[in-house]
Design a protein around this nucleic acid. Sequence first.
DNA 1: TTTCAAATGCAAACCATTTGCAAAAAAATC
DNA 2: GATTTTTTTGCAAATGGTTTGCATTTGAAA
Lengths: 137, 137
Amino acid sequence: MAEQKLSIPKGYRKTKQREAILKVLERAEYPINAEQIFMELKNRGIEISLSTIYRNLEMLTKEGLVVKSYMMNEDKARFALPDKKNYLVCEKCGKIVIIDNCPFDKFKEELIEVHGFDITGHSIEVYGVCPDCQKKG
Amino acid sequence: MAEQKLSIPKGYRKTKQREAILKVLERAEYPINAEQIFMELKNRGIEISLSTIYRNLEMLTKEGLVVKSYMMNEDKARFALPDKKNYLVCEKCGKIVIIDNCPFDKFKEELIEVHGFDITGHSIEVYGVCPDCQKKG
DNA sequence: TTTCAAATGCAAACCATTTGCAAAAAAATC
DNA sequence: GATTTTTTTGCAAATGGTTTGCATTTGAAA
Ligand SMILES: [Mn+2]
Ligand SMILES: [Mn+2]
Ligand SMILES: [Zn+2]
Ligand SMILES: [Zn+2]
């Protein structure tokens, strides 16, 4: 179950900004937004602009290395590595807890047992290709 | 399995705009955004402003009558009645199909069987109160 | 009715995100 | 390793969904 090291996708140049963003996402424990990445890098003394962060997040998302998501009562997008895309959010304090095993293989009761959350709701989005589009190739 | 008619929450006034918004949400087959509600009402000759729509959607969401969500590659929020908050989205054409039974009680395979989608991914968000906050009351 | 808080419409403000463009940096080529 | 080519970056300005201030209208209580 070793963490596979992330690398910049083929066809894209290796820049210190790009690598720094990936490193922050790797170390993050849950989805974070562009501004948080910006701050984290600023704290580490790494020069970067917000637009560069946005441009890279867009690229990484398009390439499938990163997953974009939105949370209730937030108007900013969050980004995370795919293994951190399913999570529990506390309505009160905003605490985020990653769900390690795919929720599709579990039940609500089990989530309650494992995390101790009092679950009040959830939202699920499933992506795929509909029958019509499958036919159209 | 009769659809329970939506009504304006206690403490809020009954206005034609408020009722019109609720009616649009009731008739909608899947989550829609503020602009779509605006257009729908305009087509029906109902006078309303976008800000009134936003203000009401915020109130309805806060009161739990409506659920807000975001979709991939869209920078607008969508709103729907709670029974339409779980759905399948086609990555190719954007078609939205409501998942009638709580996905937590099903498996991916069943979704494939029922809807014929080729499922490529999903994201799940669970809301609740964490153990710490439960203790704090 | 009269009264008054709540709701609306309009325009302006907000703010996360995007974009144009010139300069800087990376990879390719010589 | 210098030169050329292409990508990437930074900055500032633009974008666009959403929010907000305020004067006016409306709902419902009295
Ligand atoms: Mn459900
Ligand atoms: Mn926006
Ligand atoms: Zn909490
Ligand atoms: Zn499709």
